[in-house]
Structures are given as structure tokens and as C-alpha cells.
Amino acid sequence: MKKILLSFFVALAGFAAHAQETTLAPDQNPRYAESRDRYIKAQDQLLVNMNTTVQQTYKAYDWYEAKQERKLQRYNDRRERRLLRAQYGNFYSPYDNNYYSPYRYAPGFRRNGWRRGW
């Protein structure tokens, strides 16, 4: 008898808990649990940017800044060309190409494979 009563109360408590979970507030959407479960799964990803500034900046065209950038680019290009010319000779000149360059690459010749003059 005791066992029957105990199992009855346990079943009653389980039913009450389930009923409490499924009881809807006035005007509440009956399918609210679908949305709740979906967002519970995704909440970590969705809340990762809370209280932060997400930087989605763009590059605005500024005539003066663009001019300065072009100037800097020209300077860097010239510098790079100068360095390459010093290392490999003048590739751009028909009279000072790699073959005739005094600094041309000649593997196995003198030190580091680089030779000076003929």
C-alpha cells in the first residue's frame, strides 16, 4: 500500500512539474519552446560581441590622402628598384642586363656565386 502511494505521489509531482513547464502565459505563443531551444543552443555565439564595438570600417576615398599614398608608393618602388639594381644589375637597361652585368649571377664562381666584372 505504501509503495502504491509513494509511486502515486512521485507520478503526481512529475506531472505537476511538466504542467508548470507547459503552462502558457496569457497570449503566449504555444510554440515558444522551439524558439527557446534554438536560441539556447546558439547563445554563446550570439552573445560573444555583447558590450564590444564591432569594427566594420570602410576606406573612404580622400583625394589628398590618395595623392600622398601614391607618392609613398612611388618612393618605395624606386627604393626597391635601387636595391635590386645594386644586387642584380640593371634589368631595365639593354646595355646593363643580367648577362652583361658586372654583378651577374655565376654559380660556382668566386664567392657566394656572385662575380664582379668579367
Binding site: T52, T53, V54
Partner: peptide
């Protein structure tokens, strides 16, 4: 109130935390 996300869609790096 809870503070959410601030999105900076300008052309500069702006940290919203200073005024938030």
C-alpha cells in the same frame, strides 16, 4: 538595461566604449 553590441561602420577605427 544591458549594453549590447555597437557596430562601427564608419571609415575610422572608433572605440565606442569611451562614450558608452
Amino acid at each position: 538595461v544591458i549594453v549590447g553590441m555597437v557596430t562601427n561602420k564608419s571609415h575610422e577605427h572608433i572605440e565606442a566604449e569611451t562614450f558608452m
